[in-house]
Design a protein around this nucleic acid. Sequence first.
DNA 1: CGTTATTTTGATCGTCATCAATGCATGTGG
DNA 2: CCACATGCATTGATGACGATCAAAATAACG
Lengths: 243, 243
Amino acid sequence: MMERPVKLACASCPAHPCAVCRPLPPPARTELMAAIEAYHHPPSAEIPLARGSVNILADGLVLVERSLDDKRRQVVAFRFPGDMLCFDGEPETTSRLRTVAVTAVTVCRLPSELITDLGRRHAEFLEAMMEGACREISWLGERLLTLGRMSAQERIAIFLLEMLSRSGQPLGPGGEVSVHLPMNREDIADYLGLNVETVSRTLSRFKRMGLIRLPKPGRAVIADDAPLRAQAPLRVAGPVGQA
Amino acid sequence: MMERPVKLACASCPAHPCAVCRPLPPPARTELMAAIEAYHHPPSAEIPLARGSVNILADGLVLVERSLDDKRRQVVAFRFPGDMLCFDGEPETTSRLRTVAVTAVTVCRLPSELITDLGRRHAEFLEAMMEGACREISWLGERLLTLGRMSAQERIAIFLLEMLSRSGQPLGPGGEVSVHLPMNREDIADYLGLNVETVSRTLSRFKRMGLIRLPKPGRAVIADDAPLRAQAPLRVAGPVGQA
DNA sequence: CGTTATTTTGATCGTCATCAATGCATGTGG
DNA sequence: CCACATGCATTGATGACGATCAAAATAACG
């Protein structure tokens, strides 16, 4: 599944240059590329994160989750190509933290020694990491607002706009876009603090309202984003997990 | 209110040594102390955070909130002495981010130039900041789980244990502790994604159940923490916002 | 095709929000 | 010191939104 590292030329990386290499001067970048190990994981595989390492998603979709013994689960974030998988170092917290592949994925790992070393030699590198962490914190604050204070309709609207934004797709002619949603309803529900049925019902309502079409599971077509945004109390910006 | 800086000897700081100065070698620490400006703020004053500066709470209680135009509000965190007030640099997000004094407070500000400079000269400093940010991220993930997946009872139990833990008080003889709760019910409600009445009702229920006593607003007495922990699906660790 | 997983839809219930009133502190001026 | 005002906390009555339980419809897969 993930055993042996795959060689992946950074230049051909779908997410190049990512937040990690961008701040580095060319020679350091070369050094970093040499040390990178890429791994493939199949859907629903847990992605092991070595303590202290930095892991960048090169391709596919990943989710970060926290869960309790009684099988309640919260999806903390979805990760897109170019994102750091996880900032949390130590699992000293009580809920279980896991990083799981939603689709087949490719992950680039930078070993922890390399990270420490680069950090010591290039302050900009640590500064960029710090900036990424601060963005994540800021975004998590908005997630709290969403889970703590918003209705099911509002959460779903925000979710759709977020996926649209992260897909990187421009609005097509007439403002129509087809958004790929590789995660299933349960993942969406656990991301939004709802249950599957509510997610399904709300999506259906949006369909009836003419805001979206649902040609097949795994895909939503947004006819025009304006009415959707009217449903969302947050102006959904964009990317998280990387700068 | 906050206009002119107060001189505050770091050695006499209630939160000394905090996460910011601890990693620094003695000479750098002296330098940092010289540059520190301390400010006082009265209850419910908004605390201005200069872009790029680092602000440490020396004394009192502060809350970090995000709010919408329609007056819905989410309290993201409470800050205790020794904590960094806020990691989020840029308010590029759509919800309004504010840092507000709950009680009268003293805040130490490290100007942004000093921070940049210290970061460049002492990698341990940036590393410590990064570690603090990662802890914050980890903790925010658990907050998401709390707001997304827990009942009112569970949230209140977690809240009480958190306040107990952060108060730094040891359990008294017979396991009894009196926890100071300087924030009002509305702040608690907005912290937990509930409304005031539910908070009040749940506290009353805990009182009836014999888990706590409420001698006067602003104080809760926990007779024995074990039954409270039985209500909380999370093992509440401790400090956040600093290492 | 038949089998299984996922999604959608429906019926009902419970938790928490809302609306409204009362209780209880703290503070001020008479 | 008391009457009164004000702000906050508690308690009660009611209702709505989303959860739960159950079944049908659709998609995925061998």
